[in-house]
């Protein structure tokens, strides 16, 4: 199964990964705030992930590692 890991404290909450995910796996965690003061991304539906790495390709801060 695909596995996503995030360097959460580097996330700036721009949401590009959320927009580009074809399966709707990711959301910005509205109930969390990281060190930078942003709502960081998290995998709300990790079971839907197909490891296409579109999220990581579009992440400007390179915080996502994709494994499968």
């Amino acid at each position: 199964m695909a596995k996503l890991t995030f360097r959460t404290d580097l996330c700036k909450g721009c949401g590009l990964c959320v927009d580009f995910c074809p399966k709707g796996v990711l959301v910005l965690a509205k109930d969390k705030i990281n060190k930078k003061g942003h709502h960081p991304v998290e995998a709300a539906y990790p079971e839907k992930c197909i490891a296409c790495a579109f999220c990581a390709t579009m992440c400007p801060d390179c915080i996502i590692t994709v494994e499968k």
């Binding site: 590009l16 930078k36 994709v66």
Partner: peptide, 24 residues
């Protein structure tokens, strides 16, 4: 591993604004 941070990119937070494509 399908995707990970390249080794030549330093492991620091970049100063660019959220969503700036400089990072890409």
């Amino acid at each position: 591993v399908v995707f990970e941070k390249p080794k030549a990119l330093a492991d620091v937070s970049m100063h660019y604004c959220p969503g700036c494509t400089h990072g890409i």
